[in-house]
Nucleic acid binder design. Structure first.
Lengths: 334, 334
DNA sequence: AGCATTTGCTCAATCGATTGTGCTTTATGG
DNA sequence: CCATAAAGCACAATCGATTGAGCAAATGCT
């Protein structure tokens, strides 16, 4: 055993005294210097580590954050998770990571699990189409959304301005003189996708440009399949492609090559997402980069400030619902 | 409230009876059909969810696995984590993810945390140079190593055969007629790196080939810096480069380009790691791919079978220490 | 000396589950 | 009709911490 009881027995003090010493409440309860020293020392030499489970049960604080993403196998979310996990660790908290795999039921299960495990806060890339469930959870456990949000919600979120990003990208294509533009989109129900689509279409308003938007997933296959079916028969239907994610981009490039079309020459291409690899493709891919680190930091800080406010009985800080502007990184693919 | 007590009050039965019914031990304790139905029904309509923290405290089983990687921001480990997390989820378990950031102290802290949180098992990509600490933990909590292992250890592990992979890659380069080969390595203390280096050197034994191994991290910067300093002054010191990871590869390519050297023509290049992007570089990169999914599956299954054996008081199953052979994926970069 | 205060600690309840033991009540057998 | 067994459930301890309340001894004050 290595618990309060054993230390109490060892030192001759009671469990409560030991507890108060080791939680730093010694002076508040007027524990003698002698007791403090003896207890601290025995704890050290026994290498005592408090049982976090018991602590959680008693205090209702687990020092754990639940992180929920829709697909950890997607490099975008893997990167995002990595950043967030390290920021959480820097605050002395731990992370329970769950993957909803783009499905609402798995999302709900994960959230239930978070609750049952008494996480102190939740950071989520939501999949559901309605905010109500998360808003309800937020009454008990602070929730901050990242990357995706709901149109009207009382939940705080930090996303990048997908509308603006897509609009900028599209306008860039127009400025380059492209006249027939194909957008390949990701999950249509997700807010980033909807916003990118809106930005794409708005940029094209009033322009004499042929365009279309196809696709349904942030995946390599989707990019591949859409290009194959749209360019079927070797017709050069479009002179530019706007890929809504790097994964889509890869699939699209692959398909273009298999059709014998030269990327950047026959078909200009522009992408969304950050990915170090994009600079190493030939041609290097012009893209809309999202400030992931900044967004993550804002989200994590917001979550912790809400947690702190609630701990102290204060009202939640001002509702943060921020759209961070992305950056157009110009290379040579269009 | 939404606990056993409230359901007990609601139904008029005692907490213990409710517990036994809801944990499926009804017949074992001869609970009447009437009681079973009433309790099950009330639990359902109250949407009762057992408190996993309390359950863990009492049973010492958390249904949680601790996953420890040395750098979640590295795409390789991000992918690996993603695969493992989903496999763990499929078994009905949850994942606590920690990042040791290649440092032994952070690794130890994470492991301490796993213990304090009563994880049922640990999957780790170890950073420490000695196995003793992990072996000690393994006496209480099953530990399975993945990707990295220790030379002599009683711990089960699933790694890819890095020696063979590097040897094969190097022999491939030799077969192509390269005479001056530069290896850029990653973390020198890590077993995969040591094995790759060994394979590299063994392949060169008895060959009239000039070679060197430089570098110290699985990072883009390392690849970049090593190439710059080795090729300093525009001299074409080596006609081929063996990058020990995809990240190193990127840095190297970047540096080569900045020096005006054509990848694949002036300098042949071969890499380690799987990464979908490698096929899209120009030229597509010849590489040693590791069967990550297979390795993960083996590791997870092994962990769970050990957990099961111990639960039932059986001895651990046969010690699994497997090196899975990697695959050489031939493209056009050398 | 006598009372109040401070010091230094212990007791015991509590969080929400699980589980060994034991107590009624009803059924069974002879 | 009584003994025994089985059925059906409740009691209370337990996991390892935290925490409000309270008690005895030491000290201060007049």
């Amino acid at each position: 055993m290595n618990n309060l009881q054993s230390i109490a027995a060892e030192t001759g003090y009671s469990v409560s005294t030991v507890s108060r010493v080791l939680t730093g409440q010694a002076e508040k309860f007027r524990i003698s210097k002698k007791a403090i020293e003896l207890i601290t020392e025995t704890a050290r030499k026994c290498n005592y580590q408090p049982d976090l489970v018991a602590q959680t049960l008693r205090t209702k604080k687990s020092k754990t954050i639940g992180l929920l993403v829709p697909g950890i196998d997607n490099p975008f979310f893997a990167t995002l998770s990595g950043i967030i996990i390290n920021m959480i660790a820097a605050k002395g908290y731990h992370t329970l990571l769950a993957d909803s795999r783009e499905t609402e039921t798995e999302e709900q299960q994960a959230l239930q699990m978070f609750i049952a495990r008494k996480v102190d806060g939740i950071i989520s890339v939501p999949v559901a189409t309605s905010a109500t469930y998360l808003e309800q959870i937020n009454r008990d456990i602070p929730v901050v959304l990242i990357d995706r949000h709901f149109r009207k919600t009382t939940l705080p979120y930090v996303c990048t301005d997908n509308y603006m990003g897509a609009k900028t990208a599209t306008e860039y294509l127009l400025g380059k003189g492209y006249k027939r533009i194909l957008a390949i989109q990701g999950v249509p129900t997700s807010m980033p996708n909807q916003e990118r689509l809106r930005g794409f279409k708005d940029a094209l308003k009033g322009q004499t440009v042929q365009y279309a938007a196809v696709g349904d997933a942030f995946s390599v296959e989707n990019g591949h399949d859409q290009v194959l079916s749209v360019f079927a028969g070797g017709k050069k239907q479009y002179d530019a492609i706007f890929a809504f994610s790097a994964t889509i981009l890869l699939g699209a490039i692959d398909a273009l090559r298999s059709l014998g079309l030269k990327v950047g020459e026959d078909v200009g291409i522009i992408s969304y997402d950050n990915n170090g690899f994009l600079d190493f493709l030939d041609p290097a891919v012009t893209r809309v980069e999202q400030p992931l680190r900044e967004a993550s930091e804002l989200a994590v800080d917001t979550l912790f400030s809400i947690m702190e406010a609630r701990r102290e009985g204060r009202p939640d800080p001002d509702l943060l619902q921020r759209l961070i502007p992305p950056t157009l990184v110009v290379r040579s693919s269009c």
